[in-house]
């Protein structure tokens, strides 16, 4: 994408987002409140400032030669890769509490390392194991904050009990 296009889309996105927030400030409930006690006054002022800012960015795209100021550099982004990693991270965050830290991390960490293009199992397996187990003990024992889900103590008991 050219800097001009980025600025056009960026300015438009800012305006769209501000409009969405502006709509949230339109509550009849506070219409009669004095300015200082009106919860919506300050956010509304901010959304208006943002819309003005968005217009300036669009103007910059339209009226300058490259469609950008000297600071604006077009980055070269591999979008499918960005979406893939964001989705993986999202899935991990989603699973973090319901599946528990140990299980979610034990599955996610090797997977993401492989997806990012590193394939040496002899490194991935020990690194993952040490990270998962080490972090669990660090948080649960040293920091006294138990990560969600099954803990190492239960896993160990399960292994011992299961034979």
């Amino acid at each position: 994408m050219t800097p001009r296009l980025i600025n056009l889309i960026g300015g438009g996105a800012i305006i769209g987002l501000s409009a969405l927030f502006y709509a949230q400030t339109l509550s009849e409930r506070f219409a009669s409140a004095p300015l200082a006690r009106n919860p919506m006054a300050f956010p509304r002022l901010l959304t208006i400032l943002l819309i003005v800012g968005g217009l300036v960015v669009i103007a910059q795209a339209v009226f300058t030669r490259r469609g950008a100021l000297p600071g604006d550099v077009a980055a070269d982004v591999n979008w499918p890769r960005a979406v893939l990693i964001a989705a993986l991270a999202g899935a991990y965050f989603w699973a973090f509490e319901p599946w528990g830290f140990l299980l979610a991390t034990a599955l996610f960490l090797p997977l993401v390392i492989v997806v990012l293009g590193y394939r040496r199992a002899l490194v991935i397996v020990p690194v993952s194991a040490v990270t998962v187990v080490g972090l669990w003990y660090l948080f649960a024992r040293v920091f006294q904050i138990r990560p969600p889900g099954t803990g190492m103590d239960e896993v160990l008991r399960m292994i011992a009990g299961g034979g």
């Binding site: 034990a106 099954t150 239960e154 399960m158």
Partner: peptide, 14 residues
Amino acid sequence: NFTRATLAATLALP
């Protein structure tokens, strides 16, 4: 076996 035990433990606990 270790993996299976871990999985079983995790799933059975709740």
